[in-house]
Design a protein around this nucleic acid. Structure first.
Length: 550
RNA sequence: GCGGGCGUAGUUCAGUGGUAGAACGGAAGCCUUCCAAGCUUCACACGAGGGUUCGAUUCCCUUCGCCCGCUCCA
């Protein structure tokens, strides 16, 4: 059902985004280009804030995550190893009669939409020849455009993390469990970009690969792996104060990682962390949904995957996927590059020799089975797979294993869109002449708001007010994005800031100058969401604001 | 890529086979002692290309883009 109301809302948002300079169509003066969007002045600030908050939360505020900034174009083998060269290119067939499109390899299994009694392959519709759809953008590296020069714009940022895993491990003084975070552009030549910026061909991701010990290793070291329930209960950090967590990390952790956590606990942990993050930047839990993928929906290498969905006007859609990807990625790169991707773990080696024989045999067996299952799945011959898996499992005794990974992978642009649609609100009132007018307020969380404070003299034609206002502006400017405005009536200026989502406005009036001596050097602070006003000394403004935007 | 709808200032809309207005918004100025006040002035558009025509924003074709379906999962 197409809800016209929601469509109208979306159109208003699109129009606002353009009008106020959040989002423009790419290359608009040339007619635009499908699936590409630019961020205007306010959008650029918003996006920057979001990425910084993510980076800060995921890396700087943690001991166990470090950053990476890799290139967009990488060795093409990376995409062979990752599976993108193959799986991103399903041959498709179009039916000219019924207008359907089908995967060429499934025409025997899909019923014809017009004659469901027959399969697509046997119906009378006129079909096109199979065409390959590869969603990766291709280019050539170097001046010669031949096969050997083909490279791809990355369809995700994650693979670079795997490819650089060993370098980061060796230089960061981290050991498993630890994570590598990266933000950056990714490119997918989508069949149909849709829903404004939601599905774009060029987009930005914020991805974490969090490397953990395989369960067999955790068990060898800790005796047993904590169940998810054990990991969650009795492990809640009680906030020391019930203040609004205005200081420090915007997303206080509720779970403390423990050495006996296996992949399930870590997976659950990251789902919680990520939801906290979204709440911390102003998306209430009620606007979010967790979707735990069903076993049959999972990619073959995934053990679990949770989607965090947001209720967009056009439907409930994915913001982030948190996948437990086993050791698939590092294993693939190990096989394709021939370089070892395993780690050495002193604790494991020490623990292993102390294990009772039956225990170490059991763990050996389980590790072996997993490795073999993977190798066979990837087409390694049975005999060779057994041999390789044996070698892998033998590594445990030497303290060696290939880490597993939990991957929280978020789309920046989707999040921006979620923040805008969530912030959008209208207030209809009547003006002096009892004309009904609708004003738009973007109720961004102060942490993400593009402009933190508007600074304005009550009147423009009083030089003392202007001078003082500029002083206040200059006082705040080194610390945050502030906007000075003296044009038009004060109400008009407030309204303009409301539409930009500025949470606070500081107004310099005659009391600031000392008309009422007791109010000298104080300003009016006006709140965006309810128009409420407070009086604050200029000297306290910076601290007051910082406490609210951090 | 296929089918359906749409395309006029920044935005929302008028309008005509003789090259266009309005409202709001924006800029400048005057005025204004707290929520889009008022006055004056200014800038800005027929998505692009090709036809038909003496002439096209209007008619035709193509293309590009947007919206709705089929696909997609950051």
């Amino acid at each position: 059902m197409a809800e016209p109301k929601e469509n109208v809302l979306m159109e208003k948002i699109v129009s606002l985004c353009k009008r106020r300079g959040f989002i423009f169509q790419s290359s608009e003066i040339y007619g635009g280009i499908n699936g590409f969007w630019d961020y205007g002045p306010l959008g650029a600030e918003l996006k920057r804030n979001v990425k910084e908050l993510w980076w800060n939360t995921m890396t700087r505020q943690r001991d166990d995550v470090v950053g990476l900034e890799a290139t967009i174009i990488m060795h093409p083998q990376i995409w062979k190893a990752s599976g993108h060269v193959d799986t991103f290119s399903d041959p498709m067939i179009d039916c000219k009669t019924c207008k359907g499109r089908f995967r060429a390899d499934q025409t025997n299994e899909i019923p014809c939409p017009q004659k469901p009694s027959k399969m697509v392959s046997e119906c009378h519709g006129e079909k096109t020849a199979p065409r390959a759809f590869n969603l990766m953008f291709q280019t050539y590296v170097g001046p010669v455009r031949d096969e050997s020069a083909i490279a791809y714009l990355r369809p995700e940022t994650a693979q670079a993390i795997f490819a650089q895993f060993k370098n980061v491990l060796e230089t960061s003084r981290q050991k498993v469990p630890f994570g590598i975070a990266q933000t950056g552009k990714a490119f997918r030549n989508e069949v149909t970009p849709r829903n404004y910026t939601f599905r774009s061909r060029e987009f930005e991701q914020m991805e974490l690969e969090f490397f953990i010990k395989p369960d067999e290793v955790v068990e060898a070291i800790c005796g047993k792996v904590a169940t998810t329930a054990e990991a969650i209960t009795g492990n809640i950090e009680h906030p020391t104060s019930n203040a609004e967590h205005r200081t420090g990390n915007p997303q206080p952790s509720t779970l403390n990682p423990q050495p006996n956590w296996g992949w399930e606990a870590w997976h659950k942990y990251w789902v919680e962390e990520r939801i906290k993050f979204y709440e911390g930047i102003g998306l209430p839990r009620t606007t979010l949904e967790e979707y735990w993928q069903k076993p049959e929906e999972l990619a073959h290498y995934a053990r679990a995957c949770v989607d965090i969905l947001f209720k967009f006007p056009f439907g409930t859609q994915e913001l982030e996927g948190i996948a437990a990807r086993s050791d698939f990625d590092l294993s693939q790169h190990e096989r394709f590059s021939g370089k070892p991707m395993g780690v050495f773990d002193e604790e494991l080696r020490t623990a292993w020799v102390k294990l009772p024989k039956e225990k170490s045999d059991e763990l050996w067996r389980r590790y072996y089975e997993n490795r073999k299952k993977y190798l066979v799945k990837m087409g390694v011959a049975e005999e060779q797979a057994s041999k390789d898996a044996t070698e892998d499992a033998n590594g445990l005794a030497k303290g060696q294993y290939i880490p597993h990974v939990i991957e929280p992978s978020a789309g920046v642009d989707r999040l921006i869109l979620a923040l805008i649609t969530n912030a959008y609100s209208e207030v209809t009132g009547t003006d002096d002449k009892s004309r009904s007018e609708t004003r738009v307020i973007l109720k961004f969380h102060p942490r993400v708001a593009p402009v933190k404070a508007g600074v304005m003299p009550l009147l423009k034609n009083k030089p003392e007010l202007v001078k003082k206002a500029l002083e206040v502006r200059d006082r705040l400017r080194p610390w945050m994005n502030v906007f000075y405005d003296d044009a038009g009536s004060i109400g008009r200026r407030y309204a303009r800031q409301d539409e930009a989502g500025t949470p606070f406005c500081m107004t310099i009036d005659f009391d600031t100058l000392g008309e009422k001596p007791e109010l000298k050097d104080t300003v009016t602070v006006r709140f965006r969401d309810d128009g409420r006003q407070e009086r604050l000394p200029i000297g306290e403004l910076l601290g007051w604001l910082q406490a609210r935007i951090r």
